[in-house]
Amino acid sequence: MLVFEFKAYGKQNQFNAVDEAIRTAKFVRNSCLRYWMDNKNVGRYDLNKYCAVLARDFPFADELNSMARQSSAERAWSAISRFYENCKKGIPGKKGYPQFQKNCRSVEYKTSGWKLAEDRKSINFIDKKGIGRLKLKGTRDLHFYQISQIKRVRLVKRADGVYVQFCVDVERKENTEPSGTTIGLDMGLKEYYTDSKGITVENPRFLIQGEKVLKRSGRRVSRKVRGSKNRAKARQILGKRHLKISRQRKDHAVKLARCVISSNDVVAYEDLRIKNMVKNHCLAKSINDASWYQFRIWLEYFGKVFGKITVAVNPQYTSQECSKCGEIVKKTLSTRTHVCKCGCVMNRDFNAARNILRRGLGTAGHVGTFGQEPSNALGELTSTVVGEILPQQVDS
């Protein structure tokens, strides 16, 4: 499934109709969640049937396309099923009990409620919300795909406008010549990563670079009167600043991951638990700014596309273990040089990258790697669901 995104252009009353459609989708989602809370043994199809009840009782819900209402019900069921899975797995701590949505920024249509123009440069939403025809502007060409291949159409509202996303049912595959090289990656904060060849990539630190502008924009918002138009304008400007940083991170992760995958046949990287790492309040800001998880997602995605092997290894003791003799050398986070009694002296991250590569080559292609059974030798299965993060969904 590929996701193509286009900027939508229209009149103000059309964008107001988009806002109304998004609010209706949020209402349907929250209503389905309340229905599940108040009744026992409610399943996925029961929520879809409940959408018809909402359309009968609330006229504004009936104005939204029926399949768009079902998509909102599916969003509610997605949160419910994730809660059930966490309970079955026995995850310690909070299990992610479904919550009512406060801020919703998108509405999703399925195969009805919209009609794409023959030139693929505009789309017409034909439900009763009155959105009408929106012009599309983007770099992708939809002429390569049939209308029947478009399974979902989303209207997404962001700080700089409204976007239309097309979910196209097609499998992406690219053929490349084998390079015959392998690589291990050690993620860091000083350098973005250090590979097993000793090559380092600089950490861009997009948030640190734009923090001065963000703080200034935040102060302007706080000085405005609540509920005024000037405050709304200041909030929009602040949102655009954050959106720019988010796009910079994504662009960096996509280009870097593609370069790494296309240049190597086997890529081993750390199976980091970012959720636990950010509990360190001294490093949480820098860890989130580095966006290691997004880089990992795109590594796994391009591994599937190019048919390369990607292996997530346990990062435990990769920095302490000597890559030459295997001896454990204790060191603090401030110690940046690995010195072993066997005579091995090298950079700490370079030593860790070599250990990661050795562990990755020892587990690649074997059944039972990290509790999972790969279906084939290419595109090693990891704990991350490949394909969930497509050009946007990273935030998402």
Rank of each mutant, 00 (worst) to 15 (best):
L116G: 12
V386Y: 01
T310M: 05
L116A: 02
C325G: 07
K250N: 06
I208V: 13
I150V: 06
L378F: 08
A17R: 05
G303H: 03
R258S: 14
L238Q: 10
I261F: 00
V278N: 02
Y193R: 02
V42A: 13
T318Y: 05
K26H: 06
F302G: 01
P204D: 07
A268L: 06
Q12M: 14
R69E: 08
L134G: 01
Y293K: 14
V345H: 10
R152W: 06
G362V: 01
K173A: 14
E300N: 09
D186V: 08
A17F: 12
S383C: 15
E74Y: 00
H281E: 11
Q392Y: 14
G379L: 12
A353I: 02
I208Q: 07
L361I: 07
S222W: 08
T194C: 09
G161E: 04
A312G: 02
S66I: 10
H252F: 05
E118L: 04
E373N: 10
K121A: 02
K102S: 15
L214F: 08
C104V: 06
S112Q: 03
K250W: 04
C167V: 14
T176I: 11
F6V: 02
K331V: 11
R235N: 04
G113K: 05
G161N: 08
V168Q: 13
L390E: 15
W298F: 14
S323H: 11
K7T: 09
L54T: 11
V278C: 04
H338T: 01
H366P: 13
T111S: 10
N13T: 14
I22Y: 01
A257Q: 00
W292C: 07
I22R: 03
L256T: 03
N276D: 15
G188H: 01
R158D: 03
L272F: 11
A68K: 04
N347E: 06
F302R: 04
W114K: 09
S334N: 13
A73M: 06
R154G: 09
P374D: 03
I297Q: 08
K95Y: 06
V153T: 03
T384L: 11
D127S: 09
R69W: 10
V367Q: 11
R249V: 01
F83K: 03
D186S: 12
G379E: 05
I245K: 01
A68G: 04
C51L: 08
L155S: 08
T384Y: 06
I309Y: 03
G365E: 04
Y293T: 12
Q14S: 13
T384Q: 12
C87Q: 11
F6R: 00
I309F: 10
D271P: 12
